[in-house]
Write a protein that binds this DNA or RNA. Sequence first.
DNA 1: TGAATAGTGTCTGTAAGACAATATTCC
DNA 2: GGAATATTGTCTTACAGACACTATTCA
Lengths: 221, 221
Amino acid sequence: MTHVICTVDMVLLTLHEGGLKVALLKRDREPFKGVAALPGGFIHIEEDTDVRAAALRVLTEKTGIDVPYLEQLATFSGPARDPRGWSVSIAHYALVSFDVIDRAAHPDVKLLSVDRPISLPFDHRLILETAVSRLRSKSQYSSLPCYLVGETFTLPQLQRVYEILMGELINKVSFRRKIAEMDMLEVIEGQFESAGAHRPAQLYRLKAHFKQQLQLLERGL
Amino acid sequence: MTHVICTVDMVLLTLHEGGLKVALLKRDREPFKGVAALPGGFIHIEEDTDVRAAALRVLTEKTGIDVPYLEQLATFSGPARDPRGWSVSIAHYALVSFDVIDRAAHPDVKLLSVDRPISLPFDHRLILETAVSRLRSKSQYSSLPCYLVGETFTLPQLQRVYEILMGELINKVSFRRKIAEMDMLEVIEGQFESAGAHRPAQLYRLKAHFKQQLQLLERGL
DNA sequence: TGAATAGTGTCTGTAAGACAATATTCC
DNA sequence: GGAATATTGTCTTACAGACACTATTCA
């Protein structure tokens, strides 16, 4: 009897050099051995408590990266997406600041701009596009982009992150009103970031409550 | 070697008697034989082109119901959710008008209010709640509720559907502005629905283009 | 002091909701 | 005509974006 091949794949996204990048990992086995692909692997039923745990385990084992935010994306399936047979992949996406990837310094991990139309094995191009689309959509009305900046950040930095994700400039006053409305940031008293010949910007961090929990807006932006 | 059990489950939702109902099907085999549960089944790799096709096939085979709208919900997984072993279920949800279920008249299909805290086998209670939550959320800013009414309907009827899903009364003028903005309905010339001693309401239907395609609003409501 | 960006105050236009007037039916 | 609901017009209020002013740093 033949059965369904069951895997997890991970779309690890970060911001670098002003654009959204995806972490690709050179595959260490067939099929597509040596080709850069989304990190993925089989579920281990002896150790994984669910597919989320499997996705986290695969990412940590293969890249050494721990992520602050991960959510299930969608399940991709069919007889042709994997040459080994009829398969499902439960895809997840995770957000991380660039320095976490940088510190891991894994030799087989490469960052690639998500806009470059590079070809990927399996249906990883479709999975990637679905993840980017989901991220951009959720950025319109949630605190999701906060997981792409580091532990501490300034409001102008955060605004630029939102602008990159949404692909348009945001009104500064409106942006700050919305951030205040979300009530998810706290001032780091007395800490500022200087970035040139001008007034330094106040440093903020996510309130502890929102490290695992998205904050949503009634109306977007 | 043990492997992952791979299934699909279907949350079929409809409106009846002023409330949101889910279609449950009495199970015809173990485990939980004879118990009402979400319709579900195994993927057939010989005939299913993907999990969506499997979900549609399972629903049609087991209940004889064809649905106008179906989308993937999420994948549920773990060692304990199914007594047969470590399993994943790729859950889908579908919307249909009551008369489609009524016409199918399947003897083992029962409608149950989604708010009643009935116990369900497997993790079907969690799947159901996830589906209802997704539907209510998407109703805020999309044409999704249109799939719960029949082929033709009046604006007051559609507004009541939105109100049931969103759990609050909607301003009539705003609602009509938003419906007009979505530009997804067409007047059925000369056709009205009389419902008592008052002015009859104009009948509308979904434009053909939107029968398969959701329409989204920039700002909700 | 001037350039540059951070941060805030205020005005304006748009869009949502409140209110209400008119339309149409059955009794 | 009266009751009931459909449909549409208009006023008010709330909020998003525009504009601009002040704050603070470095050269």
